[in-house]
């Protein structure tokens, strides 16, 4: 029984030479059965392209505007500080000059009048 099975299996599994066109058919089949890759999806449709362009342009414009405004504010702040410093210099010199005059006036009065003014010069 087992011999019969063995002989039948041998008969079935005997090496058989492939037909002439085997490799050609196989290649043709492989090519035909190749899974098709999905087409890359476009993120934006054709109709959305101008919108995207405007969006990018607006973003760039906003960026340029922000930098410009920041520079302008910085310039304005510098100008305010400069004008404030200038005002302080003028005020300081005005006060100094006023007090120097007070001293000079006392010196002058002391040298011209007798006894009314007392000066330690």
């Amino acid at each position: 029984m087992s011999q019969e099975i063995e002989s039948r299996m041998r008969a079935a599994l005997r090496p058989v030479a492939p037909p002439e066109d085997f490799s050609q058919k196989l290649l043709a089949r492989v090519i035909a059965d190749r899974p098709t890759l999905p087409k890359p999806r476009r993120i934006f449709s054709e109709s959305a392209r101008p919108l995207m362009w405007w969006l990018t342009a607006s973003l760039a414009a906003c960026l340029i505007l922000a930098v410009g405004v920041q520079r302008h504010l910085e310039q304005q702040r510098l100008q305010q500080s400069g004008l404030e410093a200038r005002r302080e210099v003028v005020e300081a010199l005005r006060l100094t000059s006023q007090k120097l005059n007070l001293a000079y006036e006392a010196v002058k009065n002391q040298s011209t009048s007798l006894g009314d003014e007392e000066s330690g010069v």
Binding site: V90, L93, R94, T96, S97, Q98, L100, N101, Y104, E105, V107, K108, S111, G120, V121
Partner: peptide
Amino acid sequence: KLHKLEGQFGVPKLDIDLSKTPAPGAQ
């Protein structure tokens, strides 16, 4: 120069001869 400020900043100009003031350190 400080003396020359007299008459500016609204401070009246005084006719004072600064050369009459003593040299620094005299006091």
